[in-house]
Simulated scan of single mutants.
Amino acid sequence: MRLPDSAHTDQPWRIHEIAADFHLEDVWALPTPGGPDDFERFVRMGERIAGADHNPTDGWAWPARALWGLRWQLGRLLGWDKPEHDLGVRAPSLRDRLPADLRDGPLPPVPHGAPFRPVYLTHNEMCWELSNKTVHGLSHYGWVPDGSGGYRAQAAALIKPNGVFGRAYMAGIRPFRYLIVYPQLMKQIAHRWQDTPPGPSRDDRHPMSS
């Protein structure tokens, strides 16, 4: 379910102090019902799909798979994803801005095949980033109350388009993201969440809780 921008901006996320110059593209509630300590389970869900045998579009309907494949075919054909557009070349990595506690902390897992790099991980949020000819983009996830006594994950996309071309590209793909890609992504997340068991006891938890 898509949420108003305030669902992200009103949270005390660390991302606000780091990426104030990025535009908030959209915010989504994810189908991951849980308790207050289940963000570690959400991170472990990412770890489970980070293996080399995972396809990020597994389980998607064919229109979404086709759009995903078309984007990367066009990127190769038109040079959108060449090394000169990568992080550290066209755009400095967000990790260059991190305060010491985040820079020296753990990194979130990135699903195999996804075009992102990890930025930081805390006890209740994590961030990935990418850079190409069209945009420098951030994918942010946090763990929040769901308003009915439970908790869930929340996703936000933050972008910095690369000029007129980048803005036109983002505007052009927006309807396809909302109508085709995001619904399939939500179904995949719900399935993966159900397959990810609850976490270990507090004493055995992920090092991010220390």
Rank of each mutant, 00 (worst) to 15 (best):
M45N: 00
E40F: 00
W72P: 02
H54V: 11
L98P: 01
A91Y: 09
G69C: 10
P33K: 08
W68R: 00
L77V: 13
G59N: 15
W60S: 04
L67Q: 04
W80A: 10
D53L: 12
W62T: 15
E84C: 11
E84Y: 13
P92C: 05
W80F: 10
R65C: 02
P56M: 02
R65Y: 01
G51N: 13
W60C: 01
V89E: 15
I49E: 00
A52Y: 07
P56D: 04
L87K: 08
G59F: 08
P63A: 07
F39T: 05
R41P: 07
I49K: 01
R41K: 11
W62V: 15
G46Y: 08
L94G: 14
E84G: 12
K82S: 07
L70M: 14
V89W: 13
W68M: 02
W68V: 02
R48V: 02
G59L: 13
H85Y: 01
A66K: 11
D96V: 04
L77C: 12
L94S: 10
R48P: 01
I49G: 00
P83H: 08
P92T: 11
F39S: 05
R71K: 12
E84H: 14
W62M: 15
A64F: 06
D37L: 15
R90T: 10
R76K: 14
E47T: 11
A52H: 13
G59C: 13
R44W: 02
A91V: 07
F39C: 05
W72N: 12
A50K: 09
L74R: 03
G79F: 07
L94V: 13
Q73D: 07
R76C: 09
W60G: 00
H85M: 00
P63K: 03
R44K: 02
W60L: 06
R65G: 03
R97N: 03
I49L: 05
G59R: 12
G69W: 12
V43H: 01
D53K: 12
P83N: 08
P83K: 07
N55W: 15
W80P: 01
L94D: 02
E84K: 14
A66P: 05
L74Y: 00
D37F: 15
W80D: 05
